[in-house]
Design a protein around this nucleic acid. Structure first.
Length: 138
DNA sequence: GCCAACGTTGGC
DNA sequence: GCCAACGTTGGC
């Protein structure tokens, strides 16, 4: 299984909205970045990801699961852009902030820390494990 | 609100 | 195909 990180501005699309979609999930639309798109095209059903709130909170607030493979983004009429569907799995007990990641030696190599602009990014298994521990989720 | 970093675009 | 200019993103 692979691990990912989905980044969103809470004003645009927040964790609460994601949770409200329940089991059906929702397409992760609006991505207009090739790297992010390529990452989504690599995802498999059941892959898990962190849900990160950028700008104001700058912290990981929940765990999501990929529930549909990459498909055309319905908000895009050029046909160039694809996205996956994700559903909320659970909220974290303790949000893990960007600061926490920077402070942690093993997390300081994360893409989140070094390329904060990429909105869909891979997370290594080690990073996943560490963050889960910090977040208090199993 | 500012500024640095990155990605994309377009002229050559 | 290179590179400068511009726009956008996101941390501070």
């Amino acid at each position: 299984m692979a691990y990912w990180l989905f980044k969103s501005e809470p004003n645009t699309w927040g964790w609460d909205q994601q949770v409200a979609k329940g089991e059906a999930g929702e397409q992760w639309d609006g991505v207009r970045n090739y790297q992010a798109r390529n990452n989504m095209q690599k995802m498999a059903l059941g892959d898990r990801g962190f849900f990160y709130h950028s700008i104001k909170e700058k912290r990981i607030v929940g765990i999501v699961e990929v529930c549909a493979l990459a498909h055309p983004d319905s908000t895009d009429d050029t046909g160039k852009w694809h996205c996956v569907d994700i559903k909320a799995v659970k909220a974290v007990k303790t949000p893990v902030t960007l600061e926490d990641c920077k402070a942690h030696p093993e997390l300081s190599k994360m893409i989140l820390v070094n390329n904060s602009r990429l909105s869909v990014q891979p997370v290594s298994e080690d990073e996943w494990t560490i963050i889960c521990q910090l977040a208090g989720v199993s």
